[in-house]
Amino acid sequence: MNIKVECHEANHICDKNQYKEATFWEKVKLNFHLIYCRACRKYSARNNKLTKAIKNPKVQTVSMSEKEAMKRRLEEQLSN
């Protein structure tokens, strides 16, 4: 059993882990790799941030009246 993985494999495991598809052994390998690889730690941190953003979006929508007002202003600007 080889615990060392290359960066491309670590990134693949990180992606699988993001979707809860990584096995326990893959997670062990990934965590071991992250101890000594700064680039993969950054990749993993970005992946985690992306996962959190997708799970808990803070999206604010514009009301229909605001959309209509923006559309009128845009049409006015284009006609000038």
Rank of each mutant, 00 (worst) to 15 (best):
Y36I: 10
E26F: 01
S65I: 07
K29D: 05
N80R: 13
L34S: 04
I54H: 07
K67D: 02
L74D: 10
E66S: 04
A10F: 01
K55E: 14
E66Q: 10
I13S: 03
F32Y: 13
E21F: 11
W25N: 10
H33P: 00
I13D: 01
Q18L: 13
K49W: 02
E75C: 12
D15E: 11
H12Y: 09
P57S: 06
I35Y: 08
Y43H: 04
I54N: 03
C40M: 13
R38P: 05
K4E: 13
V28R: 06
L78Q: 10
E75N: 08
E21P: 01
N11I: 11
L50Q: 03
H8C: 07
Y36S: 08
V59S: 10
E21M: 14
I35M: 06
C7V: 10
K55M: 14
V28L: 06
S63A: 08
E6T: 08
H8F: 05
K58W: 01
F32H: 09
V28W: 11
I35F: 10
S44M: 05
A39R: 13
N80K: 10
E26G: 02
M64T: 09
H33D: 00
M1L: 09
R46A: 10
K20N: 14
E6F: 07
I3W: 08
L34R: 05
V5G: 02
Y19A: 06
V59R: 09
N56L: 12
N31I: 01
K4N: 07
K58T: 14
C14K: 01
A69K: 08
E26I: 01
I54W: 09
E66A: 04
E68S: 06
H33G: 00
T51W: 03
N47S: 13
H33R: 00
S44G: 02
E26K: 01
E66P: 00
